[in-house]
Simulated scan of single mutants.
Amino acid sequence: MSIAARLHPSRWLYLSFVWATIFFVLVPLATTVWVAFFSNKILSFPAEGYTASWFGQALTLEAFRSGFLLSFQVAIGASILAVCLGVPAAIAIARHEFRGREFINTILMSPLMIPAIVAGTAIYLFYIEVQIRSDVQLVATVEGLTLAHTLIAIPWVLRLLVASLSGLDPAIEEASLSLGASRLTTFFRVTLPSIRPGITAGVLFGFIASFGDLEKSLLLVGPGRITLPIAMINYLEYRTDPTIMAVATIQVLIIAVALIVSDRFVRLGRTF
């Protein structure tokens, strides 16, 4: 009897659902990459021919170049800040029992639960209130946008670091302390090297979360400053050629590389 014949009907149903989900996720991505090579000047099916010229046009447009640079700058800054905040938070949550621990963990993870447009609006109103009370401008500044994107990155960084700490035997740290090392020395010489893969993956995943954000950026960017997702939306208002698909393909490629590198350090399937 073949393996297929031995499968229980419920197993068949499960496998069908899995493959249908994979198909539902991958087909739009594959279609985006495919259409990016169409020679059609207006997006339409079937393809009149194939060309890679749209990628060259995407690289020559100032809006996309400046949008990419701003998105990259903000994503790098946000991921680094998120790791700086996430490391002590993850150690406190994973290693210590204290009153309010679950509440703090929930607060730090809340950006995943709140709709992005609602969070963006709340941050915008908060920035306006800060400017009114202290005359410090955060709206329409790179610094304000970076701080807002840090909130996006923190939950992912925290989750990866807690997962890394859960795989680290506390006895190793206790042995270091019992041999006379201070807590600071133990952190830098024992804990930090052990969770370095999680930190690296946290930086990369924080970068991914920030780089692809649209909703918060829409409310917080200033005149003359747009992120790559906003540049793509603006382009679609006036043109419908495959250039936008070429930009999307480049963006997907960057995120895919970051995900592959992240999975190299921390097996994401065991974390999420």
Rank of each mutant, 00 (worst) to 15 (best):
A122R: 11
Y124D: 10
F126Q: 12
I128Y: 10
E129T: 10
V130C: 10
D135Q: 14
V139A: 14
A140T: 08
L145K: 11
T146H: 09
L147F: 15
A148W: 03
A148I: 04
T150M: 15
A153T: 05
I154Y: 03
P155M: 11
V157G: 02
L158T: 01
L161D: 01
A163D: 01
S164Q: 00
L165M: 00
S166F: 00
G167L: 00
G167V: 01
G167P: 00
L168I: 09
L168C: 06
A171L: 09
A171S: 14
I172K: 03
E174Q: 14
E174R: 13
L177G: 04
L177C: 02
S178M: 11
L179R: 09
G180M: 02
R183C: 02
R183S: 14
L184T: 14
L184S: 13
T186G: 15
F187L: 13
F188D: 07
V190E: 05
V190N: 04
V190F: 02
P193C: 02
S194Q: 06
T200A: 08
V203F: 09
L204Q: 04
F205G: 00
F205I: 15
G206P: 02
F207Q: 11
F207D: 08
I208A: 06
I208L: 06
A209Y: 01
G212D: 14
G212V: 03
G212H: 04
D213Q: 15
E215Q: 14
K216I: 15
L219D: 06
L220Q: 10
L220G: 13
V221D: 07
V221M: 15
G222T: 08
P223W: 05
G224L: 07
R225S: 14
R225W: 10
I226G: 09
P229S: 10
I230K: 03
I233C: 01
L236S: 15
D241L: 13
D241W: 12
P242A: 09
A246D: 11
V247N: 03
A248Y: 07
L253S: 15
V261K: 03
S262M: 07
D263E: 07
R264S: 12
